[in-house]
Amino acid sequence: MNIQLSGVTKEFGKTAALSSVDANVKDGEFIAILGPSGCGKTTLLRLLAGFESPTEGYIEMDDKQVAAPYGVIPPEKRNIGMVFQSFALWPHLTVQEQIRFPLLHHKFVPSSIKKRKEARTQEVLELVNLTNMAERMPHELSGGQKQRVALARAVAAQPSLLLMDEPLSSLDAELRMEMRHEIQRIHRHTQTTVIYVTHDQSEALAMADRIIVMKDGAVEQIGSPETIYRFPQTEFVASFVGKANLVPGFWKKGVFHPNGNDMVAWEKREVAPYFMKRGVMPVRPEEFCLKKAGNGLTGRVENVQFQGRDVQYTILVGKDCWTVYHPAPGEFRIGEQVVVELAKEQSALRTHTEGHDNIISSTSSI
């Protein structure tokens, strides 16, 4: 299903939950809507589902207008499936009955599936690896199994659009990782258009074809996970997705001088004009390197956290605390003085000594 949102605004009283949202979704695409609580993610999903009508703007699905201020096509007249955060399973139905229900009642079930409802039920049970639990009741299932049933019920009728509202937030870390794989596998199998709401950046980066980053009801940036991570367009995107360090300084001829230090210059390609105008460089924790001595900025280790493959350091540089990832094992201790540099593969480090420039050229760019 192709979807087009044009100038979509939603107000509740005097509060604007969404402000002039423009976006498009291609058929078969997996889109993640990412943002903090209260940014308008769920409101946007409810508009797409048909539970709400926009205050301004309109929504088209497959070139047909389905929502506008003067009217909205209700959910039962849209070919959609939905997975809720709370599972929303019927307590009196078995697993296979949960899956069979939309095959009996969904308006848009293809005739080829209607003729073979039992076979389709078994296919979907196999798709989510629940064949041996077909006769179980919801109270006999684990959290991950309940989420599989909810997912199976949503895709059973082969909807053109699958809406998912933070479906993994109630699961523990291990189950979330497992269910990520399940959702990706099912998306590859069904090729259904998916719109997935989450506040978890790792879910969005790992699963989506494209990410819509939202803040305060407005779209901050739309792009592939790699683009969103490597080339953020605003401070919010840089700090919310991947927790970039926003290093102050000034730009001169495309070169950045961190903390206003003329003696140190960093070159980093593909920095958005937004940052250059504001005298800021976004630097990911893994783009820094720490040394005991060198041509960088002096800082002090404030905190150390062992993370397995990496050690996460908090470094106080001037009045700012920066996060730095360093390969394990860690070699710096709390209170130790260190030198912070931009990793050479990310930059050209230019040091001015005695009126002469010593330039180390970048070998690759992010």
Rank of each mutant, 00 (worst) to 15 (best):
Met1Lys: 12
Asn2Arg: 11
Ser6Ala: 15
Ser6Trp: 09
Glu11Ile: 04
Lys14Ile: 03
Val21Gln: 13
Asn24Ala: 13
Phe30Pro: 05
Phe30Asp: 09
Ile33Cys: 08
Gly35Leu: 08
Pro36Trp: 00
Cys39Trp: 06
Cys39Leu: 08
Leu44Val: 08
Leu45Phe: 03
Leu48Glu: 12
Gly50Val: 00
Glu52Ile: 07
Thr55Ala: 02
Tyr58Val: 04
Ile59Leu: 07
Met61Arg: 06
Asp62Gln: 09
Lys64Gln: 08
Gln65Asn: 03
Ile73Cys: 04
Pro74Asn: 07
Pro74Met: 01
Glu76Ser: 11
Lys77Arg: 13
Arg78Cys: 15
Met82Val: 14
Val83Lys: 08
Gln85Asn: 10
Ser86Val: 09
Ala88Cys: 02
Leu89Pro: 05
Thr94Leu: 02
Phe101Ile: 06
Pro102Met: 00
Pro102Lys: 04
Leu103Tyr: 06
His106Phe: 02
His106Ser: 10
Lys107Pro: 02
Ser112Phe: 00
Lys115Asp: 06
Glu118His: 00
Ala119Leu: 05
Gln122Asp: 06
Leu125Arg: 03
Val128Phe: 03
Asn132Val: 09
Gln145Glu: 11
Lys146Ile: 01
Lys146Gln: 15
Gln147Trp: 14
Gln147Val: 05
Arg148Tyr: 13
Val149Lys: 08
Leu151His: 12
Ala154Lys: 11
Ala157Ile: 12
Pro159Tyr: 11
Leu162Met: 14
Leu163Asp: 06
Asp172Thr: 04
Ala173Pro: 05
Glu174Trp: 06
Met177Thr: 10
Met179Thr: 07
His181Gln: 15
His181Tyr: 12
His181Val: 15
Glu182Ala: 11
Ile183Trp: 06
His187Glu: 15
His187Thr: 14
Thr192Asp: 13
Val194Cys: 14
Thr198Lys: 14
Asp200Cys: 11
Gln201Met: 12
Lys215Thr: 01
Asp216Pro: 00
Gly217Asn: 06
Gly217Ile: 10
Ile222Phe: 10
Gln233Lys: 05
Thr234Ser: 08
Phe236Asp: 03
Ser239Leu: 04
Val241Asn: 13
Gly242Ile: 12
Val247Ser: 00
Pro248Gln: 04
Lys252Gln: 15
Lys252Thr: 03
Phe256Asp: 13
Asn259Ser: 03
Asp262Ala: 10
Val264Ser: 03
Lys268Gln: 02
Glu270Gln: 09
Pro273Leu: 13
Pro273Trp: 07
Met276His: 02
Val280Ala: 01
Pro282Asp: 04
Arg284Met: 14
Glu286Val: 01
Phe288Gln: 00
Leu290Gln: 10
Leu290Met: 05
Lys291Ala: 08
Ala293Pro: 02
Ala293Met: 02
Ala293Ser: 13
Gly294Glu: 05
Asn295Thr: 02
Leu297Pro: 07
Leu297Cys: 04
Glu302Trp: 03
Asn303Ala: 14
Val304Thr: 15
Gln312Gly: 07
Tyr313Phe: 13
Thr314Glu: 14
Trp322Ser: 00
Thr323Pro: 02
His326Ile: 06
Ile334Tyr: 02
Glu336Ser: 08
Leu342Met: 12
Leu342Gln: 01
Gln346Tyr: 12
Thr351Glu: 04
Glu354Gly: 07
His356Cys: 06
His356Asn: 10
His356Arg: 15
Asp357Asn: 09
Asp357Gln: 05
Ile359Leu: 14
Ser365His: 01
Ser365Trp: 02
Ser365Asn: 06
